[in-house]
Nucleic acid binder design. Structure first.
Lengths: 342, 342
DNA sequence: TGCGTAAGATGAAACGTTTCGATTTTTGCC
DNA sequence: GGCAAAAATCGAAACGTTTCATCTTACGCA
């Protein structure tokens, strides 16, 4: 026998012989109800397989127990890993995740945010598709938002990211320490904090060592495997071929490696390569990669924790600082893709 | 100047000097409204930055424009890729995705489904964590559900998957064609359709060739990198070491490769390896992997399309067959990790 | 015994939409 | 110009909760 429609609070109330308000009180534990009636209500709910309707609840309370997560590129393995951390924390706290993929398109991102708002999400986690001032209004409205990984320029609010400057610095110092002098960089759009910071770290290290950063060996602007590949071809065909390269994300790194393989430029013999983001599967790479590893899942965990803390404070009406910035340290893992010169 | 709270339909109605019903009609285009008033309403909505409240809308209509997606393991690169396909189709149709990670735990999966229902999702996509009869009630209730990848045993309903039997068959035939006779298999839990089918394909190929499937070279039950590693150690320490192995998923494959590397068993010289799931990054593997590739994103696209079609039929009250099964063909990609014997 | 009080229980009003039947206005036609 | 029909508009109920003010009950104590 199948019910036509799900049981409602009224059904439970009727069956238990109490008022709807009492059922609500029992379900939420918001008021004292005699043990006897509470028991009756629970039994009734059980037998009707009653499940509170979150939609109705949200409409009334203005809270949804859902948080939105907006990422720029779901096919970049970095983000699913972050999400996994965020999901872990969220589900433990009884929150669900609405996942949105902006496809590196700021306009799409705006649309997604707007959809999220109309679904009344309690807060959002965003890795932005491009730096923009569109977030300012959110912050001004004091809407609970936490940025992770990519943080808008000049953003004042909560955020979690890796110390990308330091990552770029260490990666480059490592190359320099191996006596490389013609060092190239393949970097993402400079409007993205992550890539801009890594590039800055690179510049700083070069400057420290008194090495010039020449325009032709400084390729900025891609993000994809293909762009890494194109940049790779260009760099490896330079009259003064670089002996080392720093790729600021994993996808461009893959593209660069493809270019090197195609041109028959051996790594690390003729080109040392250091990239970003470490994964279980890179242990099978040949050569194994020297990499700046980010605490990926931890970024997700921390960002979600920050957001949930904020939400709780909001619920309890207590004061919370909404510009908590967490910077996690990356770790340079030296393996085989970088080798000393001479 | 910032509004205390979001503008509601009533606000728009007031400003436009019309009734709430008229505003609704304009927003949804459900009734004919004179051009003049429609214009006024739109202007008012614009100026108030009005956005319809999906929550209230859902409560009234019983529809949420949200679909749930439940996967067993978000850290398995296969699923994010499927999701990316599903997300693409969904967002084009104006649907959002609630993503849930069951962590290979059927009880967690049940909890997640229950949460999804209370959020009134319009339908769900599920890759099950374990075969169970708990889905029967869903199907009986005719709740819109589409399974993908992993399909519960005996399930009668809509589903999208790869032809896993054929995948296992081809992979094994390939090894046999290279004159291997001592062929091992590292497979996932046999309660999972994917792994069971791949194992069946393996058995069939072995039987065709008149080769015995010995218990000790048939490791069934893991899913993770670690279990692939453990199985790998066991298999490679067998007195009669297998000369080839078929791993039924990408994670176990990674584990197996680690074991081989650790024991110094060269691939493909001493062990040929074929696995499942191809990725952009495997091109950097050494050796490059012979792999059964699934049309991963396509699985996501098709599954979501199936679900949305069903939802549309439901909305329009038209009849739809709710047991549409789509089986996509995998493709064996022969590369360097398998080599001929003798 | 009676009274004050606290605990328990409840009815009804929201929350922001959609939708339907009723009402008003416009249109077309003889 | 009058009338029927079509078009446009509207008021109000409903969706399933939460919550608050109100009402009832029971208990302890003088």
């Amino acid at each position: 026998m199948v019910k036509k429609t799900d049981a409602t609070m009224r059904d439970v109330a009727r069956l238990a012989g109490v008022s709807v308000a009492t059922v609500s009180a029992v379900i939420n534990g918001t008021a004292t109800v005699s043990a006897q009636r509470a028991q009756k209500v629970r039994a009734a709910a059980e037998s009707l397989d009653y499940h509170a309707d979150q939609i109705a609840r949200s409409l009334k309370t203005g809270r949804s127990n859902v948080v939105g997560v907006v990422i720029p590129d779901i096919t970049n393995a970095f983000y699913p890993e972050v999400i996994s951390g965020a999901e872990e924390v969220a589900s433990q706290a009884g929150y669900s995740l609405i996942l949105c993929n902006a496809n590196e398109d700021p306009r799409q991102e705006q649309r997604l945010l707007s959809t999220l708002f109309s679904h009344r999400v309690d807060g959002v986690l965003v890795a932005c598709s491009d730096s923009s001032t569109a977030y300012d209004s959110l912050v001004r409205r004091r809407f609970p938002i936490v940025f992770f990984d990519r943080i808008p320029q000049g953003f004042r609010g909560s955020a979690v990211s890796t110390d990308n400057f330091s990552g770029g610095l260490e990666a480059t110092r490592h190359l320099i320490g191996m006596r490389h002098t013609r060092i190239a960089i393949v970097a993402g759009r400079s409007t993205l904090s992550t890539h801009a910071d890594r590039l800055e770290g690179f510049r700083k290290a070069m400057q420290e060592a008194g090495l010039p950063v020449r325009d032709e060996s400084c390729r900025v602007g891609g993000l994809t495997i293909d762009s890494g590949y194109e940049f790779g071809l260009e760099l490896l065909r330079l009259p003064e071929q670089p002996t080392a390269v720093f790729c600021t994300n994993n996808k461009m790194l893959l593209g660069f490696l493809r270019a090197a393989r195609e041109l028959g430029v051996a790594c690390p013999e003729r080109i040392s390569v250091v990239g970003f983001d470490d994964y279980a599967w890179t242990e099978n790479f040949h050569p194994q990669l020297t990499i700046v590893a980010q605490p990926t899942r931890e970024i997700g965990r921390q960002a979600m924790t920050l957001l949930l803390t904020r939400l709780q404070a909001l619920r309890e009406g207590s004061r919370s600082h909404d510009n908590h910035v967490i910077v996690l340290q990356p770790e340079l893992r030296v393996r085989q893709s970088t080798a000393g010169l001479l």
